[in-house]
Amino acid sequence: MVRLIPPIVTTLPLFPVTNALGLQDTHVLLAVLYATFFVSLGSFVMRTFIDQIPKEMDEAAAIDGAGRFTTLWRVIMPLSAQGMMAVAVFVAVYAWNEFLFAFIFTSIRAKTAPLVLAEVVGSFDGVEWGTLFAAATVQLLPVLAFVWITQKYLVAGLTAGATKG
């Protein structure tokens, strides 16, 4: 359901809340917002990966004296590392490129790169296309490198559960 709601709809009620909490123009606010919008999809991706881990592993850990959290930490987490990487790629790409929340909830301190690029386009002196494209390329490089390194996990995340049954 969360994924069906257009993000702009949530900004109006969020604005007074963030003001009251003193979170305007902070890194934490944007991080929590981006994470919140992705946890719904991430949960289903993780569920698909964890479904593939036999329940007998949990039971074996329980026999060895492990509690729920220890089982999660010592058994489930290492075995679902691929799923975690897939979720990390999705979230990182979304958070890196997101514009709307950054535009509304930041002004000076936590301003992100897409906002600065947009300011270059909207400057009164005319658009400096050379500067704009250089900056866009610099902004693209880190996320491109990250996705290139982790692309095998991304494919695994997209196809996980595709042949279930």
């Binding site: 994470a35 949960s43 993780m46 990390a88 990182a92």
Partner: peptide
């Protein structure tokens, strides 16, 4: 920060 929070929360929920 967003990646760490989302991955951890997704792991628990998943």
């Amino acid at each position: 920060q967003a990646t760490v929070i989302a991955v951890f929360a997704s792991l628990l929920a998943g």
